[in-house]
Amino acid sequence: MRRVFLLLPILLLLMASCELYYEQPVQTGKVRIVSIGITYENEPDGNDNLSNLPGTVFDAKELSSAFSQQAVQAGWDSADVEITLLLQEGDVYSAATVNADGYASRENLNSTLETIKETATDNDLTIITYSGHGIEETGELLMAHTKTSGPVDISEDSPIVVTPEWLHARISPIKGKKLLILDSCYSGVFIPESPSSSSWVYDNGIDDWYGKYFSDEEYQIPSFVVFTASADSNSYEQQFETHKHGVFSSALLEALGWNHTTVTIAGGVPPAARNGLLSVDSLYQYIKKHQAYPVRWSIFTMDKPIQHPMVTGGAMDMLLFSY
Rank of each mutant, 00 (worst) to 15 (best):
V4T: 10
P9R: 03
P9T: 07
P9F: 10
L13N: 12
A16S: 14
L20Q: 07
E23F: 11
Q24N: 14
V26T: 11
Q27T: 09
V31Y: 02
R32H: 12
S35L: 05
I36S: 01
Y40V: 07
L50R: 01
F58D: 03
F58Q: 10
D59R: 06
E62Q: 14
L63W: 08
A66Q: 10
Q70S: 06
Q70T: 04
A74E: 05
A74D: 00
G75H: 05
T84G: 00
L85Q: 14
L85N: 15
L85C: 03
G90P: 11
G90M: 07
D91A: 15
S94W: 00
A95L: 15
A96P: 06
A96F: 02
V98S: 04
S105I: 08
R106H: 02
E107G: 11
N110W: 08
I116T: 05
I116S: 01
E118P: 00
T129R: 08
Y130N: 00
G132R: 02
I135V: 15
I135Q: 13
G139C: 09
L142W: 03
A144I: 04
H145D: 10
H145A: 13
S149E: 10
G150W: 11
G150L: 09
G150C: 05
E156T: 12
E156Q: 13
P159N: 12
V161R: 15
T163Q: 05
H168T: 12
I171E: 05
S172Y: 12
P173Q: 08
K175G: 10
K177W: 04
K178N: 14
K178G: 03
L182D: 03
L182N: 08
S187T: 09
G188V: 10
V189W: 04
F190D: 03
P192A: 04
P195Y: 06
S196R: 06
S198C: 12
S199P: 08
Y202H: 14
D203T: 12
N204L: 06
N204I: 00
G205I: 01
K212I: 05
S215G: 15
E218H: 01
Q220S: 13
P222S: 08
P222M: 11
S223N: 15
S223P: 01
V225G: 00
V226C: 01
T228L: 04
S230F: 00
N234G: 08
N234R: 07
E237T: 00
Q238S: 12
E241P: 10
T242N: 14
H245S: 02
G246Y: 05
V247G: 10
A251G: 09
A255R: 07
V263R: 13
G267T: 00
G267R: 11
G268S: 01
G268W: 01
V269G: 10
A272Y: 00
A272N: 03
A273K: 05
G276V: 02
V280N: 04
S282L: 07
L283G: 03
Y284L: 07
Q285L: 09
Y286L: 08
A292F: 09
P294D: 09
R296E: 15
I299P: 05
T301M: 06
T301V: 01
P305A: 09
G313L: 04
G313E: 06
D317W: 10
L320C: 09
F321L: 07
